[in-house]
Amino acid sequence: MKSNKISVLVVDDSALIRRLLTEIINAESDMQVVATAPDPLVARELIKLHNPDVLTLDVEMPRMDGLDFLERLMRLRPMPVLMVSSLTDKGSEVTLRALELGAVDYIAKPKVDIASGLQGYAELIAEKIRACSQARVASRAGHKASDQAQLRAQAVAASRKRTSYSTTEKIIFVGASTGGTEAIKDFLIDLPADMPAILITQHMPENFTRTFAERLDKLCTLRVSEAVHNQRILPGHVYIAPGNLHLEVTRSGANYMTFLHEGEPVNRHRPSVDVLFYSAARVAGANAVGVILTGMGKDGAAGLLEMKRAGAYTLAQDEASCVVFGMPKEAIAVGGVDEVLPLTQLPSRVIEHLGQRINRV
Rank of each mutant, 00 (worst) to 15 (best):
T344N: 12
I24M: 11
R152E: 08
V54H: 05
E262G: 11
S116A: 14
K128V: 11
G120S: 08
L343E: 08
A115T: 12
R75S: 12
M257V: 13
I24T: 08
V42F: 03
P265V: 08
H269Q: 14
L55A: 07
N26K: 04
A286P: 13
I332C: 00
S321Y: 03
V174A: 02
L346F: 07
V323T: 04
I24G: 09
P80I: 11
G297M: 02
T167D: 15
G300P: 02
R72Q: 15
V249C: 09
A288D: 03
Y239A: 00
F277G: 04
L354W: 00
A176D: 03
I129T: 02
S177Q: 01
R140Q: 14
V11F: 05
A197N: 02
P271G: 03
E45S: 14
P265F: 08
M204R: 04
Q154P: 05
V54W: 05
V81H: 05
Q134T: 11
P196V: 04
D299I: 09
T211V: 15
L276E: 12
T95C: 03
D318V: 01
C322W: 00
L343T: 05
F259S: 14
R162K: 15
E127V: 00
T294Y: 03
L305T: 07
F212R: 05
I198H: 10
V323I: 09
V59R: 10
M74Q: 10
I24H: 09
D299Y: 11
I332W: 03
N255E: 14
L49Q: 15
F187A: 06
E93D: 10
Q356P: 00
E352N: 10
S7W: 06
T209V: 06
H353L: 12
R72L: 12
D39I: 00
M1T: 15
T95D: 00
G66D: 12
G180E: 01
V174T: 03
S159T: 15
P205I: 09
Q345P: 06
M1D: 14
Y106V: 09
P62N: 07
K185P: 07
A286E: 15
V228I: 13
D12A: 10
P110K: 10
L276F: 09
D53W: 01
A241G: 06
P80R: 05
L82Y: 04
H237L: 12
A286W: 08
A153Q: 13
D299M: 11
G311R: 06
F69C: 08
G300S: 04
K90W: 11
